[in-house]
């Protein structure tokens, strides 16, 4: 379970960085960062499900 927890924390750090970039960016760059954030959020959700699955077993 801890493995997933740590990976999620890492993911959050990256997301923080990405969000800062997104906040500064304008126009097309903004879209690029949005896509990046989106895929990291997907990843976070996937990790959460794995973590929860592990919890249940």
């Amino acid at each position: 379970m801890n493995n997933y927890k740590n990976t999620i924390l890492e993911c959050d750090k990256t997301l923080d960085m990405l969000r800062k970039e997104w906040f500064k960016a304008e126009g097309k760059d903004k879209e690029k960062w949005s896509l990046c954030i989106d895929s990291f959020l997907n990843e976070r959700l996937r990790l959460m499900k794995l973590r929860n699955g592990e919890c249940q077993t």
């Binding site: 997301l15 923080d16 969000r19 954030i37 989106d38 959020l41 997907n42 976070r44 959700l45």
Partner: peptide, 8 residues
Amino acid sequence: PEMAHYFK
């Protein structure tokens, strides 16, 4: 920042 996760 949690709100981005919320919508997702």
